[in-house]
Write a protein that binds this DNA or RNA. Structure first.
Lengths: 186, 186
DNA sequence: CTATAATTCTAACGAACGTTAAAGAAAGGA
DNA sequence: TCCTTTCTTTAACGTTCGTTAGAATTATAG
């Protein structure tokens, strides 16, 4: 086992535990047991429980979000958003769990004030980004902003179904729903 | 203070704590401190921590859901769903927090397997109920089921915004989004 | 081979947890 | 008045928590 393999392994197990039991329900001892290492090893690689949780959200979750956002390049609008959501089905287990944990913090079901405000900032950037993306392709009048807002809301629910409830969403259902929202606009 | 006033007060404070800190992050001592009673008083009225949590979900949350569902009577479809969501803004603080806690369990962010499966049953009833409600008013062909599904998904996000993120959703925004989904069908 | 640095362990610390025993106050009917 | 039931408290139990001290082991470099 190489240098930081154990560190990564600890974090993987921690993500599972934080997901299953929440921050307070997760114990360092249980993590160590599942990793098959001694308890103080956790403290060798991480300053404490809180810094571990913070690293998962601040590093891994936001990396994931940025990676996702960077993929936002449009050809056909419906095709594009369908693929965007559909691909979430095939994220790695670790990425899914990090994503799930992030959503948990986003909904202020876990984490602390600091992480929450990071989330708020991110959220504020969502609508403008999608509006800018869709702008060149929307031909309708008047209610474009409402359409983008509705679309983003719909995307949120679908993301939650895949990531949080761990369901498989078939491509045609995704396409159907996106088409309904965008019908006549694009 | 009457007979069961203290019992209710304890539950109110408990709901706040479960919401803010999760099941494991909530301590009986902190509840007692906020209620301004001694620690064993909690055990005088509730068998233990778990039964308290269970009562909140099984009694209060599901009562709330049923009360909401019983209001589902349609005149004008868009008006109706708009009002349905808009009224959530004005739920009492206690009802909002119970609702929030229920959603937390629904997303399996808290609670246990038993509560989760209760939620699953409830969830299965959602789509058929809305489909039956909307059926007489939908005039479109082919994709009615997808429209209902999309509508329910949209409703979910809006409920989450009001209840979980504790935001005020203005009536016209709600109406706009519902209209976009239902456009041409109703 | 030896010394230094990087890992990993056993053992324990104080604090906080859920829960309960046991007894004191308050209230109400006889 | 006294007795019984209902409410409320102080004090403590055993357990588990996050965290650390300090020593043992392993790897690395000279």
């Amino acid at each position: 086992m190489a240098d930081t393999d154990l560190r990564e392994r600890i974090k993987e197990v921690a993500v599972e535990h934080f997901n299953a039991n929440g921050y307070h329900g997760t114990t360092i001892r249980n993590i160590a047991k599942d990793v098959n290492c001694s308890l103080p090893m956790i403290y060798y690689y991480y300053k404490n429980k809180k810094e571990m949780f913070d690293e998962i959200i601040k590093k891994d979750f936001f990396n994931l979000l940025e990676k996702q956002a960077s993929l936002l390049k449009i050809d056909n609008v419906v095709d594009f958003y369908t693929k965007f959501i559909y691909d979430l089905n095939f994220l790695s287990n670790y990425d899914k769990q990090v994503y799930r944990l992030g959503i948990k913090v986003y909904l202020s079901f876990d984490g602390d004030e600091e992480l929450m405000s990071l989330m708020d900032e991110w959220e504020k950037s969502i609508l403008p980004r999608h509006y800018q993306l869709l702008k060149p392709y929307i031909k309708n009048v008047g209610n474009e902003i409402a359409v983008v807002r509705t679309l983003v809301h719909l995307l949120e629910t679908m993301i939650e179904n895949i990531i949080v409830k761990n369901r498989y969403l078939p491509e045609d259902e995704i396409r159907e729903e996106i088409s309904i929202v965008l019908q006549g606009c694009v």
